[in-house]
């Protein structure tokens, strides 16, 4: 399994980005229901691993941080979900 995606918050972030071109920090914090500080720390780990990309831009005059899923992040997510599914099917067979 992917160690980075064993965290429920990080897995949730990647799932949120799956169907999105980008999602803002505020929207992610709202969707994941966690504090800004906690989310920021998890996002930094995902950015460092190359799973997500961070873009700093402006909405009018307000600064806006937004995130998108990279190809390696998408591949890691798919592989991780497959392993979760096989763990479940293995458990139900056993």
């Amino acid at each position: 399994m992917d160690d980075l995606l064993l965290s429920k918050i990080r897995l949730g972030v990647v799932a949120e980005l799956l169907n999105a071109q980008w999602v803002s920090f505020t929207d992610l914090a709202h969707a994941i229901e966690t504090t800004n500080g906690n989310l920021g720390a998890h996002l930094a780990k995902l950015v460092d691993a190359g799973y997500i990309a961070e873009e700093k831009t402006y909405a009018g005059r307000r600064p806006l941080s937004r995130y998108s899923l990279t190809e390696s992040g998408r591949a890691a997510f798919v592989a991780h979900v497959r392993q979760l599914e096989s763990l479940l099917s293995g458990a139900s067979e056993g």
Partner: peptide, 17 residues
């Protein structure tokens, strides 16, 4: 990770997607 954790994570992913 045990199977109940895996189920919980998968359910969350399905909900979000």
């Amino acid at each position: 990770m045990d199977s109940s954790d895996a189920r919980e994570h998968l359910e969350m992913v399905e909900r979000i997607v």
